[in-house]
Write a protein that binds this DNA or RNA. Structure first.
Lengths: 242, 242
DNA sequence: ATAATAGTGTCTCTCAGACACTATTAA
DNA sequence: TTAATAGTGTCTGAGAGACACTATTAT
Protein backbone atom coordinates (compact mmCIF):
# COMPACT_ATOMS: atom_id res chain seq x y z
CA UNK A 1 0.00 0.00 0.00
CA UNK A 2 2.82 2.37 0.75
CA UNK A 3 4.05 1.96 -2.81
CA UNK A 4 0.68 2.19 -4.49
CA UNK A 5 -0.01 5.27 -6.55
CA UNK A 6 -3.54 6.37 -5.80
CA UNK A 7 -5.91 8.47 -7.84
CA UNK A 8 -7.00 10.11 -4.59
CA UNK A 9 -4.41 12.59 -3.34
CA UNK A 10 -5.65 12.03 0.23
CA UNK A 11 -4.38 8.48 0.14
CA UNK A 12 -0.85 9.74 -0.34
CA UNK A 13 -1.04 11.69 2.90
CA UNK A 14 1.32 10.61 5.57
CA UNK A 15 -0.62 8.16 7.71
CA UNK A 16 -0.46 8.09 11.49
CA UNK A 17 0.60 4.92 13.28
CA UNK A 18 -2.39 3.03 14.69
CA UNK A 19 -2.18 0.97 17.83
CA UNK A 20 -4.52 -0.64 20.32
CA UNK A 21 -3.81 -0.79 24.05
CA UNK A 22 -5.72 -2.79 26.61
CA UNK A 23 -6.08 -2.04 30.31
CA UNK A 24 -6.68 -5.49 31.76
CA UNK A 25 -8.14 -5.52 35.24
CA UNK A 26 -8.54 -8.38 37.65
CA UNK A 27 -8.95 -8.78 41.39
CA UNK A 28 -6.03 -10.56 43.05
CA UNK A 29 -5.89 -11.09 46.81
CA UNK A 30 -8.72 -8.60 47.31
CA UNK A 31 -6.89 -5.89 45.41
CA UNK A 32 -7.72 -4.40 42.04
CA UNK A 33 -4.77 -5.21 39.79
CA UNK A 34 -3.76 -4.37 36.25
CA UNK A 35 -1.51 -6.26 33.84
CA UNK A 36 1.67 -4.48 32.75
CA UNK A 37 4.31 -5.59 30.24
CA UNK A 38 7.93 -4.55 29.99
CA UNK A 39 9.06 -2.79 26.82
CA UNK A 40 11.94 -4.61 25.12
CA UNK A 41 15.42 -3.56 26.22
CA UNK A 42 16.41 -2.84 22.61
CA UNK A 43 17.61 0.76 22.60
CA UNK A 44 16.13 1.33 19.15
CA UNK A 45 12.65 0.80 20.59
CA UNK A 46 10.86 3.65 22.32
CA UNK A 47 10.89 3.55 26.14
CA UNK A 48 13.21 0.52 26.41
CA UNK A 49 12.76 -1.46 29.61
CA UNK A 50 9.82 0.62 30.83
CA UNK A 51 6.51 -0.80 32.00
CA UNK A 52 3.61 -0.29 29.62
CA UNK A 53 0.09 -1.42 28.95
CA UNK A 54 -0.20 -4.47 26.73
CA UNK A 55 -0.88 -3.41 23.16
CA UNK A 56 0.67 -2.80 19.82
CA UNK A 57 0.11 -2.06 16.19
CA UNK A 58 -3.08 -2.96 14.42
CA UNK A 59 -2.29 -5.68 11.92
CA UNK A 60 -4.51 -4.94 8.93
CA UNK A 61 -3.98 -8.44 7.60
CA UNK A 62 -4.92 -10.16 10.82
CA UNK A 63 -7.39 -7.93 12.67
CA UNK A 64 -10.81 -7.43 11.20
CA UNK A 65 -11.62 -4.57 13.58
CA UNK A 66 -10.25 -2.60 16.50
CA UNK A 67 -12.29 -4.74 18.89
CA UNK A 68 -10.83 -7.91 17.32
CA UNK A 69 -7.36 -6.47 17.71
CA UNK A 70 -7.97 -5.74 21.39
CA UNK A 71 -9.37 -9.24 21.91
CA UNK A 72 -6.28 -10.68 20.22
CA UNK A 73 -3.88 -8.72 22.46
CA UNK A 74 -5.80 -9.88 25.49
CA UNK A 75 -5.73 -13.49 24.35
CA UNK A 76 -2.01 -13.31 23.64
CA UNK A 77 -1.21 -11.95 27.08
CA UNK A 78 -3.61 -13.86 29.27
CA UNK A 79 -5.17 -16.70 27.33
CA UNK A 80 -8.58 -15.32 28.26
CA UNK A 81 -11.06 -15.61 25.41
CA UNK A 82 -14.40 -14.26 26.60
CA UNK A 83 -13.78 -11.28 28.83
CA UNK A 84 -15.74 -8.14 29.38
CA UNK A 85 -14.13 -5.85 26.81
CA UNK A 86 -15.20 -2.25 26.33
CA UNK A 87 -13.74 0.58 24.31
CA UNK A 88 -12.38 3.28 26.60
CA UNK A 89 -11.31 6.14 24.34
CA UNK A 90 -8.68 7.06 21.78
CA UNK A 91 -5.61 9.20 22.15
CA UNK A 92 -3.85 10.61 19.14
CA UNK A 93 -1.28 13.36 18.71
CA UNK A 94 2.10 14.12 17.26
CA UNK A 95 4.07 13.66 20.46
CA UNK A 96 2.88 10.55 22.25
CA UNK A 97 5.13 8.16 20.30
CA UNK A 98 8.67 9.22 19.30
CA UNK A 99 8.27 7.26 16.06
CA UNK A 100 5.68 9.69 14.77
CA UNK A 101 2.09 10.90 14.85
CA UNK A 102 0.21 8.01 16.40
CA UNK A 103 -3.29 7.09 17.47
CA UNK A 104 -4.19 4.47 20.03
CA UNK A 105 -7.61 3.08 20.71
CA UNK A 106 -7.64 2.00 24.33
CA UNK A 107 -9.89 -0.76 25.64
CA UNK A 108 -10.46 -1.99 29.12
CA UNK A 109 -11.07 -5.59 30.03
CA UNK A 110 -12.33 -7.29 33.16
CA UNK A 111 -11.19 -10.87 33.60
CA UNK A 112 -11.02 -13.60 36.19
CA UNK A 113 -7.81 -15.43 36.81
CA UNK A 114 -7.66 -19.18 37.22
CA UNK A 115 -6.25 -19.73 40.70
CA UNK A 116 -2.47 -19.44 40.81
CA UNK A 117 -2.10 -17.89 37.38
CA UNK A 118 -1.12 -14.56 38.85
CA UNK A 119 2.49 -15.69 39.15
CA UNK A 120 2.76 -17.86 36.04
CA UNK A 121 4.48 -16.03 33.17
CA UNK A 122 3.18 -16.95 29.72
CA UNK A 123 5.84 -18.88 27.82
CA UNK A 124 7.60 -16.98 25.07
CA UNK A 125 5.83 -13.74 25.85
CA UNK A 126 7.63 -10.60 26.94
CA UNK A 127 7.87 -10.11 30.68
CA UNK A 128 4.50 -9.26 32.16
CA UNK A 129 3.24 -8.77 35.68
CA UNK A 130 0.06 -8.10 37.61
CA UNK A 131 0.45 -4.89 39.57
CA UNK A 132 -1.89 -3.51 42.21
CA UNK A 133 -3.59 -0.47 40.70
CA UNK A 134 -2.37 2.17 43.12
CA UNK A 135 1.19 0.95 42.65
CA UNK A 136 0.80 0.94 38.87
CA UNK A 137 -0.42 4.53 39.00
CA UNK A 138 2.73 5.57 40.82
CA UNK A 139 4.94 4.15 38.05
CA UNK A 140 5.95 6.30 35.10
CA UNK A 141 4.68 4.12 32.28
CA UNK A 142 5.82 4.24 28.65
CA UNK A 143 4.13 6.57 26.14
CA UNK A 144 1.05 8.25 27.62
CA UNK A 145 0.04 5.00 29.28
CA UNK A 146 -0.13 6.54 32.74
CA UNK A 147 -2.80 8.86 31.44
CA UNK A 148 -4.67 5.99 29.78
CA UNK A 149 -4.47 3.92 32.95
CA UNK A 150 -5.82 6.84 34.99
CA UNK A 151 -8.72 7.22 32.59
CA UNK A 152 -9.47 3.49 32.74
CA UNK A 153 -9.45 3.45 36.53
CA UNK A 154 -11.66 6.53 36.64
CA UNK A 155 -14.09 4.98 34.16
CA UNK A 156 -14.19 1.69 36.03
CA UNK A 157 -14.71 3.31 39.45
CA UNK A 158 -17.34 5.57 38.00
CA UNK A 159 -19.27 2.79 36.30
CA UNK A 160 -19.10 0.59 39.35
CA UNK A 161 -21.31 3.14 41.11
CA UNK A 162 -24.22 2.38 38.82
CA UNK A 163 -23.54 -0.81 36.84
CA UNK A 164 -23.00 -4.52 37.33
CA UNK A 165 -19.43 -4.42 36.03
CA UNK A 166 -17.74 -6.05 39.06
CA UNK A 167 -19.64 -9.27 38.35
CA UNK A 168 -17.27 -9.76 35.41
CA UNK A 169 -14.33 -9.92 37.79
CA UNK A 170 -15.64 -13.10 39.45
CA UNK A 171 -15.50 -16.74 38.47
CA UNK A 172 -18.95 -18.31 38.20
CA UNK A 173 -20.75 -19.39 40.16
CA UNK A 174 -20.28 -16.65 42.73
CA UNK A 175 -22.24 -15.61 45.79
CA UNK A 176 -23.74 -12.25 46.70
CA UNK A 177 -21.27 -11.77 49.57
CA UNK A 178 -18.41 -12.38 47.13
CA UNK A 179 -19.91 -9.90 44.70
CA UNK A 180 -20.30 -7.36 47.49
CA UNK A 181 -16.67 -7.87 48.43
CA UNK A 182 -15.66 -7.20 44.83
CA UNK A 183 -17.67 -4.00 44.72
CA UNK A 184 -15.98 -2.90 47.93
CA UNK A 185 -12.54 -3.66 46.53
CA UNK A 186 -13.14 -1.62 43.41
CA UNK A 187 -14.93 1.23 45.14
CA UNK A 188 -12.46 1.35 48.00
CA UNK A 189 -15.20 1.60 50.60
CA UNK A 190 -17.75 -0.59 52.33
CA UNK A 191 -21.35 -0.82 51.20
CA UNK A 192 -24.43 -1.78 53.18
CA UNK A 193 -25.35 -5.44 52.83
CA UNK A 194 -29.10 -5.02 52.77
CA UNK A 195 -29.14 -2.19 50.25
CA UNK A 196 -26.58 -4.03 48.16
CA UNK A 197 -28.61 -7.23 47.96
CA UNK A 198 -31.83 -5.42 47.14
CA UNK A 199 -30.04 -3.57 44.35
CA UNK A 200 -28.48 -6.63 42.78
CA UNK A 201 -31.57 -8.81 42.95
CA UNK A 202 -33.94 -6.09 41.76
CA UNK A 203 -31.74 -5.51 38.72
CA UNK A 204 -32.39 -9.14 37.73
CA UNK A 205 -29.13 -9.62 35.87
CA UNK A 206 -28.21 -12.72 37.87
CA UNK A 207 -29.65 -16.19 37.81
CA UNK A 208 -29.45 -18.71 40.61
CA UNK A 209 -27.30 -21.70 39.94
CA UNK A 210 -27.23 -23.92 43.02
CA UNK A 211 -25.54 -23.42 46.35
CA UNK A 212 -21.91 -22.62 47.09
CA UNK A 213 -20.35 -23.82 50.34
CA UNK A 214 -17.92 -21.58 52.09
CA UNK A 215 -15.29 -22.65 54.61
CA UNK A 216 -17.31 -21.49 57.60
CA UNK A 217 -20.90 -20.73 58.35
CA UNK A 218 -24.03 -20.90 56.28
CA UNK A 219 -23.83 -21.91 52.62
CA UNK A 220 -24.72 -19.21 50.09
CA UNK A 221 -26.75 -19.16 46.91
CA UNK A 222 -24.61 -19.33 43.79
CA UNK A 223 -25.30 -17.03 40.86
CA UNK A 224 -24.15 -16.51 37.33
CA UNK A 225 -24.53 -13.60 34.93
CA UNK A 226 -27.60 -13.90 32.72
CA UNK A 227 -26.15 -12.02 29.76
CA UNK A 228 -22.37 -11.77 29.54
CA UNK A 229 -22.55 -9.39 26.60
CA UNK A 230 -23.72 -6.41 28.57
CA UNK A 231 -23.56 -4.91 32.03
CA UNK A 232 -26.77 -3.58 33.53
CA UNK A 233 -27.26 -0.01 34.67
CA UNK A 234 -28.88 0.63 38.04
CA UNK A 235 -31.42 3.45 38.36
CA UNK A 236 -29.35 5.29 40.95
CA UNK A 237 -25.79 5.73 42.07
CA UNK A 238 -24.60 3.95 45.18
CA UNK A 239 -24.14 7.16 47.08
CA UNK A 240 -26.16 9.90 45.52
CA UNK A 241 -24.41 13.24 45.50
CA UNK A 242 -21.30 11.63 47.05
CA UNK B 1 7.59 8.84 5.63
CA UNK B 2 6.24 6.31 3.18
CA UNK B 3 9.66 6.07 1.61
CA UNK B 4 11.67 5.97 4.81
CA UNK B 5 13.41 2.74 5.63
CA UNK B 6 12.97 2.08 9.30
CA UNK B 7 15.04 -0.03 11.64
CA UNK B 8 11.81 -1.14 13.24
CA UNK B 9 9.97 -3.69 11.12
CA UNK B 10 6.67 -2.59 12.71
CA UNK B 11 6.94 0.76 11.01
CA UNK B 12 6.84 -0.94 7.64
CA UNK B 13 3.47 -2.45 8.42
CA UNK B 14 0.66 -1.30 6.26
CA UNK B 15 -0.95 1.57 8.10
CA UNK B 16 -4.71 2.07 8.35
CA UNK B 17 -6.27 5.30 7.15
CA UNK B 18 -7.10 7.65 10.02
CA UNK B 19 -10.02 10.03 9.92
CA UNK B 20 -12.02 12.15 12.33
CA UNK B 21 -15.78 12.66 12.03
CA UNK B 22 -17.85 15.13 13.98
CA UNK B 23 -21.53 14.86 14.83
CA UNK B 24 -22.53 18.49 15.21
CA UNK B 25 -25.80 19.07 17.05
CA UNK B 26 -27.82 22.22 17.39
CA UNK B 27 -31.41 23.09 18.19
CA UNK B 28 -33.24 24.74 15.30
CA UNK B 29 -36.91 25.69 15.56
CA UNK B 30 -37.30 23.58 18.68
CA UNK B 31 -35.95 20.49 16.95
CA UNK B 32 -32.67 18.72 17.53
CA UNK B 33 -30.72 18.96 14.29
CA UNK B 34 -27.44 17.62 12.97
CA UNK B 35 -25.15 18.97 10.26
CA UNK B 36 -24.66 16.75 7.19
CA UNK B 37 -22.41 17.31 4.18
CA UNK B 38 -22.71 15.86 0.69
CA UNK B 39 -19.91 13.66 -0.59
CA UNK B 40 -18.37 14.95 -3.83
CA UNK B 41 -20.00 13.68 -7.00
CA UNK B 42 -16.63 12.46 -8.31
CA UNK B 43 -17.13 8.77 -9.09
CA UNK B 44 -13.59 7.96 -7.95
CA UNK B 45 -14.53 9.01 -4.43
CA UNK B 46 -16.33 6.58 -2.13
CA UNK B 47 -20.09 7.12 -1.74
CA UNK B 48 -20.34 9.92 -4.34
CA UNK B 49 -23.24 12.28 -3.75
CA UNK B 50 -24.29 10.66 -0.49
CA UNK B 51 -24.91 12.53 2.74
CA UNK B 52 -22.24 12.06 5.39
CA UNK B 53 -21.03 13.46 8.68
CA UNK B 54 -18.48 16.25 8.35
CA UNK B 55 -15.01 14.84 8.75
CA UNK B 56 -11.95 13.70 6.93
CA UNK B 57 -8.37 12.59 7.14
CA UNK B 58 -6.14 13.60 9.97
CA UNK B 59 -3.48 15.92 8.60
CA UNK B 60 -0.33 15.07 10.54
CA UNK B 61 1.28 18.33 9.45
CA UNK B 62 -1.61 20.49 10.57
CA UNK B 63 -3.35 18.76 13.47
CA UNK B 64 -1.54 18.45 16.74
CA UNK B 65 -4.07 15.98 18.14
CA UNK B 66 -7.33 14.22 17.34
CA UNK B 67 -9.21 16.84 19.36
CA UNK B 68 -7.51 19.63 17.39
CA UNK B 69 -8.47 17.91 14.19
CA UNK B 70 -12.11 17.67 15.27
CA UNK B 71 -12.10 21.33 16.31
CA UNK B 72 -10.66 22.24 12.92
CA UNK B 73 -13.37 20.33 11.01
CA UNK B 74 -16.00 22.02 13.13
CA UNK B 75 -14.52 25.44 12.50
CA UNK B 76 -14.29 24.80 8.77
CA UNK B 77 -17.93 23.77 8.53
CA UNK B 78 -19.59 26.17 10.94
CA UNK B 79 -17.19 28.90 11.93
CA UNK B 80 -17.82 27.99 15.57
CA UNK B 81 -14.67 28.22 17.66
CA UNK B 82 -15.57 27.34 21.25
CA UNK B 83 -18.14 24.60 21.24
CA UNK B 84 -18.76 21.76 23.59
CA UNK B 85 -16.69 19.02 21.95
CA UNK B 86 -16.45 15.52 23.36
CA UNK B 87 -14.94 12.35 21.99
CA UNK B 88 -17.64 9.81 21.24
CA UNK B 89 -15.84 6.61 20.27
CA UNK B 90 -13.75 5.14 17.49
CA UNK B 91 -14.70 2.74 14.74
CA UNK B 92 -12.10 0.81 12.83
CA UNK B 93 -12.28 -2.19 10.57
CA UNK B 94 -11.35 -3.47 7.15
CA UNK B 95 -14.70 -2.83 5.51
CA UNK B 96 -15.99 0.56 6.54
CA UNK B 97 -14.11 2.45 3.82
CA UNK B 98 -13.66 0.94 0.34
CA UNK B 99 -10.21 2.54 0.14
CA UNK B 100 -8.88 0.22 2.83
CA UNK B 101 -8.64 -0.57 6.52
CA UNK B 102 -9.65 2.65 8.23
CA UNK B 103 -10.16 4.05 11.69
CA UNK B 104 -12.31 7.02 12.56
CA UNK B 105 -12.42 8.84 15.86
CA UNK B 106 -15.86 10.33 16.16
CA UNK B 107 -16.59 13.43 18.22
CA UNK B 108 -19.83 15.12 19.02
CA UNK B 109 -20.27 18.85 19.33
CA UNK B 110 -23.02 21.01 20.74
CA UNK B 111 -23.23 24.48 19.26
CA UNK B 112 -25.53 27.47 19.11
CA UNK B 113 -26.35 29.03 15.80
CA UNK B 114 -26.36 32.77 15.26
CA UNK B 115 -29.92 33.59 14.24
CA UNK B 116 -30.55 32.94 10.55
CA UNK B 117 -27.37 30.98 9.96
CA UNK B 118 -29.27 27.75 9.54
CA UNK B 119 -29.87 28.52 5.88
CA UNK B 120 -26.62 30.27 5.02
CA UNK B 121 -24.17 27.95 3.24
CA UNK B 122 -20.51 28.59 3.98
CA UNK B 123 -18.78 29.98 0.88
CA UNK B 124 -16.51 27.57 -0.94
CA UNK B 125 -17.39 24.65 1.27
CA UNK B 126 -19.04 21.51 -0.03
CA UNK B 127 -22.81 21.46 0.22
CA UNK B 128 -23.94 21.13 3.80
CA UNK B 129 -27.30 21.18 5.50
CA UNK B 130 -28.88 21.07 8.92
CA UNK B 131 -31.21 18.10 9.14
CA UNK B 132 -33.64 17.26 11.89
CA UNK B 133 -32.26 14.26 13.76
CA UNK B 134 -35.08 11.81 13.12
CA UNK B 135 -34.93 12.59 9.43
CA UNK B 136 -31.14 12.21 9.37
CA UNK B 137 -31.50 8.81 10.99
CA UNK B 138 -33.78 7.67 8.20
CA UNK B 139 -31.18 8.52 5.55
CA UNK B 140 -28.62 5.97 4.46
CA UNK B 141 -25.45 7.91 5.14
CA UNK B 142 -22.03 7.26 3.62
CA UNK B 143 -19.57 4.84 5.28
CA UNK B 144 -20.84 3.66 8.68
CA UNK B 145 -22.00 7.16 9.49
CA UNK B 146 -25.56 6.07 10.23
CA UNK B 147 -24.19 3.89 12.98
CA UNK B 148 -22.02 6.72 14.30
CA UNK B 149 -24.96 9.11 14.24
CA UNK B 150 -27.10 6.60 16.11
CA UNK B 151 -24.40 6.23 18.76
CA UNK B 152 -24.08 10.01 19.08
CA UNK B 153 -27.81 10.50 19.50
CA UNK B 154 -27.96 7.69 22.05
CA UNK B 155 -25.05 9.17 23.98
CA UNK B 156 -26.54 12.65 23.92
CA UNK B 157 -30.02 11.50 25.01
CA UNK B 158 -28.48 9.35 27.70
CA UNK B 159 -26.25 12.10 29.08
CA UNK B 160 -29.07 14.62 29.04
CA UNK B 161 -30.77 12.52 31.70
CA UNK B 162 -28.05 13.30 34.22
CA UNK B 163 -25.86 16.15 32.96
CA UNK B 164 -26.04 19.82 32.07
CA UNK B 165 -25.23 19.23 28.40
CA UNK B 166 -28.27 21.01 26.91
CA UNK B 167 -27.00 24.30 28.34
CA UNK B 168 -24.36 24.22 25.60
CA UNK B 169 -27.08 24.37 22.95
CA UNK B 170 -28.21 27.82 24.10
CA UNK B 171 -26.88 31.29 23.44
CA UNK B 172 -26.02 33.14 26.62
CA UNK B 173 -27.62 34.62 28.53
CA UNK B 174 -30.48 32.16 28.66
CA UNK B 175 -33.36 31.68 31.09
CA UNK B 176 -34.40 28.62 33.05
CA UNK B 177 -37.61 28.21 31.02
CA UNK B 178 -35.51 28.26 27.83
CA UNK B 179 -33.16 25.68 29.29
CA UNK B 180 -36.11 23.52 30.30
CA UNK B 181 -37.48 23.78 26.76
CA UNK B 182 -34.11 22.62 25.42
CA UNK B 183 -34.07 19.62 27.74
CA UNK B 184 -37.56 18.75 26.58
CA UNK B 185 -36.57 19.00 22.92
CA UNK B 186 -33.61 16.68 23.38
CA UNK B 187 -35.37 14.24 25.68
CA UNK B 188 -38.51 14.20 23.61
CA UNK B 189 -40.76 14.53 26.63
CA UNK B 190 -41.91 17.14 29.12
CA UNK B 191 -40.31 17.58 32.52
CA UNK B 192 -41.74 19.07 35.70
CA UNK B 193 -40.90 22.73 36.15
CA UNK B 194 -40.39 22.67 39.90
CA UNK B 195 -38.19 19.60 39.91
CA UNK B 196 -36.28 20.93 36.94
CA UNK B 197 -35.49 24.27 38.56
CA UNK B 198 -34.43 22.70 41.84
CA UNK B 199 -32.12 20.38 39.96
CA UNK B 200 -30.46 23.08 37.88
CA UNK B 201 -30.00 25.56 40.70
CA UNK B 202 -28.79 22.94 43.20
CA UNK B 203 -26.14 21.82 40.74
CA UNK B 204 -24.72 25.35 40.86
CA UNK B 205 -23.26 25.31 37.36
CA UNK B 206 -25.06 28.51 36.36
CA UNK B 207 -24.47 32.07 37.38
CA UNK B 208 -27.00 34.85 37.23
CA UNK B 209 -26.32 37.53 34.71
CA UNK B 210 -29.15 40.05 34.76
CA UNK B 211 -32.70 39.78 33.56
CA UNK B 212 -34.01 38.73 30.18
CA UNK B 213 -37.29 40.12 28.90
CA UNK B 214 -39.58 37.86 26.97
CA UNK B 215 -42.30 38.93 24.58
CA UNK B 216 -45.10 38.32 27.05
CA UNK B 217 -45.44 37.98 30.76
CA UNK B 218 -42.96 38.23 33.57
CA UNK B 219 -39.28 38.83 32.81
CA UNK B 220 -36.94 35.95 33.64
CA UNK B 221 -33.54 35.75 35.28
CA UNK B 222 -30.70 35.37 32.78
CA UNK B 223 -27.95 32.82 33.36
CA UNK B 224 -24.69 31.78 31.84
CA UNK B 225 -22.56 28.67 32.26
CA UNK B 226 -19.93 29.03 34.99
CA UNK B 227 -17.40 26.68 33.42
CA UNK B 228 -17.70 26.05 29.70
CA UNK B 229 -15.01 23.37 29.81
CA UNK B 230 -17.12 20.76 31.53
CA UNK B 231 -20.69 19.66 31.93
CA UNK B 232 -21.89 18.82 35.43
CA UNK B 233 -23.31 15.47 36.45
CA UNK B 234 -26.48 15.39 38.53
CA UNK B 235 -26.73 12.90 41.37
CA UNK B 236 -29.75 11.17 39.85
CA UNK B 237 -31.38 10.53 36.54
CA UNK B 238 -34.41 12.54 35.52
CA UNK B 239 -36.66 9.53 35.63
CA UNK B 240 -35.21 6.82 37.78
CA UNK B 241 -35.72 3.33 36.49
CA UNK B 242 -36.94 4.26 33.05
C1' DA C 1 -24.33 -24.22 72.24
C1' DT C 2 -21.32 -21.20 69.75
C1' DA C 3 -19.13 -18.91 66.09
C1' DA C 4 -19.38 -17.62 61.66
C1' DT C 5 -21.52 -16.43 57.81
C1' DA C 6 -26.05 -15.74 54.81
C1' DG C 7 -30.01 -13.43 54.36
C1' DT C 8 -34.41 -10.37 55.93
C1' DG C 9 -37.36 -6.66 58.03
C1' DT C 10 -38.12 -2.16 59.49
C1' DC C 11 -37.32 2.59 60.06
C1' DT C 12 -35.81 6.90 58.39
C1' DC C 13 -34.09 10.34 55.36
C1' DT C 14 -33.50 12.32 50.97
C1' DC C 15 -34.98 13.72 46.84
C1' DA C 16 -37.68 13.72 42.48
C1' DG C 17 -42.28 14.36 40.74
C1' DA C 18 -46.97 16.19 41.03
C1' DC C 19 -49.43 20.06 41.28
C1' DA C 20 -51.37 24.00 43.26
C1' DC C 21 -50.00 28.25 44.55
C1' DT C 22 -47.92 33.21 44.27
C1' DA C 23 -45.28 36.96 41.56
C1' DT C 24 -44.38 40.03 37.83
C1' DT C 25 -45.02 41.97 33.46
C1' DA C 26 -47.62 44.03 29.19
C1' DA C 27 -51.82 45.25 27.15
C1' DT D 1 -58.23 43.12 35.17
C1' DT D 2 -56.70 39.61 32.32
C1' DA D 3 -53.51 36.77 29.94
C1' DA D 4 -49.21 35.08 29.89
C1' DT D 5 -45.24 33.70 31.73
C1' DA D 6 -41.75 33.19 35.91
C1' DG D 7 -41.03 31.27 40.02
C1' DT D 8 -42.28 28.86 44.91
C1' DG D 9 -44.30 25.71 48.53
C1' DT D 10 -46.11 21.49 49.98
C1' DC D 11 -47.22 16.75 49.80
C1' DT D 12 -46.18 12.13 48.53
C1' DG D 13 -43.90 8.04 47.07
C1' DA D 14 -39.79 5.40 45.86
C1' DG D 15 -35.76 3.86 47.08
C1' DA D 16 -31.13 3.79 49.48
C1' DG D 17 -28.81 3.49 53.93
C1' DA D 18 -28.63 2.16 58.80
C1' DC D 19 -28.98 -1.44 61.62
C1' DA D 20 -31.11 -4.93 64.19
C1' DC D 21 -32.98 -9.10 63.46
C1' DT D 22 -33.51 -14.23 61.87
C1' DA D 23 -31.55 -18.47 59.35
C1' DT D 24 -28.30 -22.04 58.34
C1' DT D 25 -24.10 -24.36 58.63
C1' DA D 26 -19.71 -26.67 60.88
C1' DT D 27 -17.48 -27.64 65.07
Amino acid sequence: MNKKISTDPHLDFERPLVTVDVVIFSVIDDKLAVLLVRRPDDEREPFPGRWALPGGFVDVNQDRSLQDCAARKLREKTGVKAPYLEQLASWGDSGRDPRGWSVTSAYFALITLPVGQAEVPIAGAPESQWVEVEEARRKRLAFDHSQILAAAVARLRSKVEYTSLPAFLLTEPFTLPQLQQTYEVVLGREVDKSAFRKRMLDAAFLEEVGVVDGVFGRAATGYRIRDRDRAVTFPRMFKSGE
